[in-house]
Design a protein around this nucleic acid. Structure first.
Length: 92
DNA sequence: GTTGAGCGC
């Protein structure tokens, strides 16, 4: 399951996310998104977990909780931006 | 070192 994590602390890294979600199950991958050019602050990231049930539990337990001094938002992630079907599906 | 609301190159 793909998980979207927002409102991260500036001190939170990809490995922090990995470690955080590993408490609830096996984490396939974790990444904190940063600006491509400056390599700075976007303060959100993605976590992919192998087990959907554990992922859901992690979302439920970690959403709206205080982590690293910041209250984080955890929810299911949308599929990554696609480059096809421009003429269809304007995302709702 | 950036807000509110955010979805990865």
């Amino acid at each position: 399951m793909n998980i979207f994590v927002a409102k991260l602390s500036a001190d939170t890294s990809s490995e922090d996310l990995h470690d955080l979600f590993s408490q609830y199950g096996e984490v396939t991958s974790a990444k904190v998104i940063k600006d491509r050019e400056t390599g700075f602050s976007k303060k959100y990231g993605f976590v992919e977990m192998e087990n959907d049930d554990e992922a859901q539990t992690a979302i439920d337990e970690l959403n709206d909780t205080d982590y690293d001094g910041s209250q984080i938002v955890v929810k299911k992630a949308r599929p990554r931006e696609q480059r096809e079907r421009r003429d269809f599906n304007r995302r709702y």
